[in-house]
Amino acid sequence: MKPTTRRTLAAVITGVAAAVGAAATPAAAAGSVPVPVPLDGVSKSLGMEVPKLGLEVPLLTPGAPDGPRYVTGRLLPDRTLPQMPVTGALPGAHLQAPLPHLLGDGFDHAGFDAHASDLRTLAPGLAVDAPLTAPNPNNFGLPDPKLPELGVLAPALRTVPVADLGTGPGL
């Protein structure tokens, strides 16, 4: 292969890699990936306007769990199985459907936009304690028996979904 051909091939590969990297970076930073639904073929085959549809698929990111916490008087740590946080987004949707001037001359489409909303979750956790107390100096250093403890840490879900519904000119 000639050096000119190698340089040209390297330049093309570098340009493609830069374009793919530039396109992937905003999607990863936003927490969701936009997915357009191609309906142009249906529009051309039927000879009429069809709705425009786009979706946003969330990217889930696991976080670092809070470690076990040691508590005075217990043999086992407070959160034996810690809760795992997961962040991401709710799926979004964008839809524009044509209207045949039902609402007057200025309204040509109805639109629905549900943007991808931030989502924060915590998986359920487990808190367990042994059926023995810590060593008791009054009992020659032996632990005292007690009832075992078992607790489930409830999962959590935090989000604020937002959606817009409206009409307007053009499609």
Rank of each mutant, 00 (worst) to 15 (best):
P3A: 13
T5A: 13
R6P: 02
R6M: 12
R6A: 14
R7I: 11
T8N: 09
A10W: 12
A10R: 13
V12F: 02
T14D: 04
T14G: 15
V16W: 14
A18T: 13
A19M: 15
G21E: 08
A24C: 09
T25N: 06
P26K: 14
P26W: 13
S32G: 02
S32D: 04
V33N: 00
P36M: 09
P38E: 14
L39S: 01
D40T: 15
D40L: 09
D40I: 05
G41M: 07
S43N: 12
S43V: 11
S43I: 06
K44R: 15
S45L: 14
S45E: 14
G47N: 09
G47P: 08
G47R: 07
M48A: 13
E49L: 06
K52D: 11
G54Y: 01
L55Q: 07
L55K: 06
L55R: 07
E56M: 03
L60R: 08
L60N: 04
T61W: 12
G63A: 10
G63M: 08
D66T: 12
D66V: 12
D66A: 14
P68G: 15
G73A: 11
R74I: 05
L75R: 15
P77M: 11
D78L: 15
D78E: 15
R79P: 03
P82M: 10
P82C: 10
Q83W: 05
M84L: 15
T87L: 07
G88Y: 00
A89M: 09
A93M: 07
L95I: 04
A97C: 03
P98A: 05
L99T: 00
P100N: 06
P100I: 01
H101R: 14
H109Q: 12
A114P: 02
A114R: 03
A116C: 08
A116L: 05
D118M: 01
D118S: 11
R120C: 00
L122S: 10
G125Q: 07
L126A: 11
A127I: 08
D129Q: 15
P135D: 02
P137D: 11
P137L: 14
N139D: 10
N139R: 07
F140H: 08
G141L: 10
P143M: 10
D144N: 14
D144E: 08
K146T: 11
P148N: 05
L150N: 03
V152H: 01
A154I: 08
A154Y: 07
T159D: 00
V160P: 00
P161I: 00
P161V: 02
V162S: 10
L165M: 01
G166A: 03
P169M: 05
P169Q: 09
P169Y: 11
G170Q: 09
L171S: 07
